[in-house]
Nucleic acid binder design. Structure first.
Lengths: 208, 208
DNA sequence: ATCATATTGTTCCGTTTTTCACAATAACAT
DNA sequence: ATGTTATTGTGAAAAACGGAACAATATGAT
């Protein structure tokens, strides 16, 4: 079974590129077209496909619609993914308002916050009290949560929601969460991303 | 010269862990303490340090304050980093309000948007018209930009700002920007992060 | 002063990941 | 029908990466 995160990220990128190509009217695609679009080598594209048993046609490339079907199936996009957001601060509420997830079949169906002032049950995406999260997760069978709470709270909250049934957490809190059995954690750390950028910009400057 | 992004990310994590240890009163640290804090092996810690010529003391470990000094210097944190945000939509304005960057020595000094309704010159972090960005970047010598514009605009805007002097872009638009000579691009793609999480959650389920 | 011990720094080794290279072959041209 | 060509699929080579192991050595104990 595939455990290589980068490989799966590439599949997502292929998929996105394929939609763009499709929108431009293309029906088939060659490995080197996709490679250019995504910024990898053509070999890499073919090998990634081969890992997942995706095959094309000698001299004919890959048929975009079939390819998308397979990629979408691998990526779990053949069903709507219901997601909750924990923490309705700046980042959390921006994510709730962000429309970009919908076209990816990802739907944020509720937010949760500990602050009573943030509660809003009548909103399109309601913001509910944090202590209702556990029941909500169980009742709705939610598997994925976006964690956007202050770092001090992140560890405790992550353990609670995973105990309630969350299997995957996208963590925005700028600290490393302790591994949780049966729960996958992906970190988005904007400070570190910026630091990283700053480093490579500085290095590039020094090279000159 | 180091081109391994993961290695630099680890340096950031070491740094963050060191601040936490320092806050707890620790003065020195051993490679295995840091390893535990960050979730890597002790060998990895020592090797990372060795790459950057950071040395500790046999049997004495590393002195936290000196270590932090070196890491901060490597990561370019010995000077305030002025950053601008392009695009004052949901994500862009959340980032402008986000306080987490300040303690990292990263200061967002202005936002830019093409929509006149978003302009606000009197704000603490002013939001200025997009067509002032070029002049602003040059006048202030800005090197780093956070790009949070709709995907359709991302490519064009990225080329404009890099022509004006931007050397690093943290791109939130969900598409791959064409490589730009002399400009480093890091992508933060939330859709892909979620997709990735969904994939691994599904895989974990199937394994049972 | 000598010895024992803990920890670094680095070399070596195994694994993973990427790239290269080319045989297989389907499509097309003649 | 035959030959040519373009592109895939994959096996082998190379590179990158991380982990284990251990020699070197500073510190502290006796």
């Amino acid at each position: 079974m595939i455990t290589n995160k980068n490989c799966i990220i590439r599949l997502s990128r292929y998929k996105n590129a394929l939609y763009r190509l499709q929108a431009l009217g293309f029906v088939k695609v060659f490995s080197d077209n996709l490679a250019d679009a995504v910024g990898v080598t053509a070999s890499q594209v073919r090998k990634d496909f081969s890992i997942f048993g995706i095959s094309g046609n000698k001299k004919g490339g890959y048929q975009i619609d079939l390819l998308l079907e397979k990629l979408n199936s691998i990526l779990g996009k053949d069903q709507l993914q219901k997601v909750i957001v924990i923490g309705a601060g700046h980042i959390g509420s921006a994510l709730m308002r962000y429309r970009g997830f919908e076209k990816e079949g990802i739907k944020i169906i509720a937010g949760f916050d500990i602050d009573p002032a943030k509660i809003n049950r009548s909103n399109v995406i309601p913001v509910l009290p944090l202590d209702e999260a556990k029941g909500f997760i169980k009742a709705q069978g939610i598997k994925i949560a976006i964690l956007a709470v202050p770092d001090i709270a992140a560890q405790e909250v992550s353990e609670e929601i995973s105990a309630a049934g969350i299997k995957g957490i996208l963590n925005f809190a700028p600290l490393r969460l302790k591994d949780i059995e049966g729960c996958v954690i992906n970190n988005v750390n904007l400070e570190i991303e910026l630091e990283n950028l700053i480093y490579f910009v500085n290095v590039a400057q020094k090279l000159k």
